[in-house]
């Protein structure tokens, strides 16, 4: 559905996207992770035709974005992070407006609106003013508006910000439904558990480059287990020394080191090192890698 090849974008001397490559298939949910300023929002803006790019190829359904923007937009939809609708209009008035501006008419319009209402459970609040909805309901309306043109591609920019866990789960369930409907979904979030829950593929982006990409299970398996070594408060001056002596170590907390390892020898080597330096260890934990630790490991300053 989406194929991006060596995409570059700069603002003056600041390179925001640096030869970025990825592809998103139909019937999949692709997660995009990265720290603030990594380039996620710029990528989403480029893919929606809101920002130009400097070089590279961006194809939607085999069509170049630069020359088929209008046509591509008719098959795509952006669900922005902000609640982009009119709070003084009711739910149904908002849906009618956004359907109208996209020139969706007749029976198709009714069908699309009904689908958007149904899948987002908005039936009981159609005549309610949008500004009076709860946070979760507003998020669902935001998504419903994005479904009005029955898009093949959906861009979700942190769609669950600021809502309670129950509402979040409901929204994630809805998004998983799109995969079943053979849509392609590009999903950005800072909340790792939801990425792990719904995404098939993930790309971790940092400083405009993709530093890790693939399906989540393979990425976690490749990166194996991890050891966290917590030191006493009095020993924290040794953290940087340890990292300089052992490149596999990174600092993840004021008194905690992370060893992303997949073999016993590395663990043994690190423990020997700590003993040689007479560093007092408070606690050692071993766990399988999760996405959050992998993300921190790949993007932290300790590397």
């Amino acid at each position: 559905m989406i194929k991006i090849d060596k995409l570059c974008k700069s603002y003056g001397d600041n390179t925001v996207l640096d030869e970025l490559c990825l592809s998103v298939q139909a019937g999949s949910i692709f997660g995009l992770l990265g720290p603030n300023g990594a380039g996620k929002t710029t990528l989403i803006s480029i893919l929606n035709g809101l920002t130009n790019y400097d070089s590279g190829d961006v194809l939607f359904f085999g069509l170049p974005l630069s020359s088929h923007l209008t046509e591509i937009r008719q098959r795509c939809s952006l669900i922005p992070q902000s609640l982009a609708f009119y709070e003084n209009l009711s739910v149904i008035e908002n849906l009618n407006f956004f359907a109208g501006v996209q020139k969706i008419k007749g029976q198709q319009r009714n069908n699309n609106i009904d689908y958007a209402i149904e899948i987002n459970s908005l039936n009981s609040m159609l005549k309610q003013k949008s500004g009076t909805l709860s946070g979760g309901q507003k998020r669902r309306l935001n998504i419903a508006i994005g479904l009005l043109n029955n898009p093949d591609v959906l861009f979700f920019d942190e769609p669950t910000v600021g809502i309670d866990p129950q509402s979040r789960n409901e929204i994630l369930t809805t998004i998983q439904q799109f995969k079943a409907d053979n849509k392609a979904v590009l999903y950005t979030s800072h909340y790792m558990p939801e990425i792990e829950k719904i995404c098939d593929q993930v790309a971790i982006i940092n400083a405009g480059k993709i530093i890790k990409q693939g399906d989540i299970s393979s990425m976690l398996a490749t990166n194996g287990g991890q050891v966290t070594i917590e030191l006493y408060e009095t020993e924290k001056q040794y953290l940087k020394t340890c990292c300089s002596l052992c490149p596999q170590l990174s600092i993840i907390a004021p008194t905690t080191l992370l060893l992303a390892v997949n073999d016993a020898d590395s663990i043994h080597h690190v423990l020997q090192l700590l003993a040689q330096q007479s560093v007092k260890v408070k606690q050692i934990n071993y766990a399988t890698t999760n996405l959050e630790s992998l993300f921190i490991n790949l993007t932290s300053e300790g590397r």
Binding site: G49, L50, R73, Q81, A84, F98, N149
Partner: peptide, 17 residues
């Protein structure tokens, strides 16, 4: 201004308006 702040205008731009 409300449309700009809430990114409704951005959404409309993405809808070919």
């Amino acid at each position: 201004i409300n449309e700009r702040k809430q990114n409704t205008l951005m959404r409309l731009s993405a809808m070919n308006i």
